[in-house]
Amino acid sequence: MGTQSTTGRANQKLRTRTAIVQAAAELSRTGQEVTMPEVARKALVSEATAYRYFPDLLSLLREAIAGQLPTAAEALRPVAGSADPVERVAAATEFLLRHVLARQGVVRAMIAATVVRPAEAAARPGLRFGLIDHALAPAAESGAVGHAALDQLKRDLAVVVSADALFSLIDLNGLAPEDAISSLLHTATTLTRAALRDDRRAESSDGPGTTAHLEMAD
């Protein structure tokens, strides 16, 4: 009898936990604000019960959205056949920003949680760095951009291809979402073109003619 009772309680706890995670996952897909009280209401449990299973909203959201994010290759499938860094960066930028906009409630909640707890930031699920790496992979493999220039470009793009940049333009600059996306798309592609152009100029200045000149001077 005791074993059956213990098993029954364990099953009930599992059902409650699953209901909370599912409620958070469903809310995350709506784009609406995601809070622990709202998750609890949707899961038909009290807020105190939700906190018994998850110590904070961040830990709940990490579990709720696990498996929801596409891989970088899936996200950039439309440009899989292209080796053009500008085209690939444009596709990565637009995909990320539209993904963020569609799920802005959960994204805002996770940003807020990690701003006050920076040690948790690394555990925040994200697409940004993987998308940028994948977008620039053909350029890295072909040597179209030098190693140092490529690393700098990735850092530059990480500032622009981000939820933080999108929300800054919408919330602080007052841009409409579509205008904000267009602005960041313009910046990302401009950075990419500039990196390609500057790297080619650097290569030109270090070309055979320059080397020969230096050898003669020696």
Rank of each mutant, 00 (worst) to 15 (best):
M1P: 05
Q4T: 12
S5F: 08
T6H: 08
T6E: 14
G8R: 15
G8Q: 13
R9Y: 00
N11G: 11
N11Q: 14
Q12V: 05
L14V: 06
R15N: 10
Q22N: 15
A24V: 01
E26I: 05
R29G: 14
R29L: 13
R29M: 12
E33G: 07
V34D: 05
E38R: 15
A40M: 04
A40G: 04
V45A: 07
A48K: 09
A48P: 00
A50P: 04
Y51A: 03
F54T: 02
S59Y: 07
L60N: 09
A64W: 01
I65L: 04
P70H: 03
P70N: 07
A75D: 01
R77G: 13
P78V: 12
S82D: 07
A83K: 13
A83F: 07
A83G: 15
E87D: 10
R88C: 07
V89T: 10
F95P: 00
L97Y: 04
L97I: 08
L101G: 03
A102Q: 11
V106G: 11
V107R: 10
M110C: 01
R117N: 15
P118V: 13
A121R: 13
A122K: 10
G126T: 01
L127C: 04
L127P: 07
R128D: 12
G130P: 03
L131A: 02
D133C: 11
P138W: 03
A139R: 03
A140P: 03
V145N: 11
G146L: 03
H147V: 13
A149K: 03
A149C: 06
L150M: 11
L150G: 06
D151E: 14
D151Q: 15
Q152G: 02
L157R: 03
V160C: 07
V160I: 11
S162E: 08
A163P: 05
A165D: 06
L166A: 06
F167H: 02
F167C: 01
F167W: 10
S168Y: 14
L169R: 14
G174Y: 11
L175I: 02
P177K: 02
E178V: 05
D179K: 10
A180R: 02
S183D: 12
L184E: 03
L185E: 07
H186V: 10
T189N: 00
T190R: 12
R193G: 09
A194S: 14
A194M: 11
A195D: 09
E203F: 14
E203T: 11
E203R: 15
S204K: 14
G207C: 09
G207K: 01
P208F: 07
G209V: 12
D218V: 11
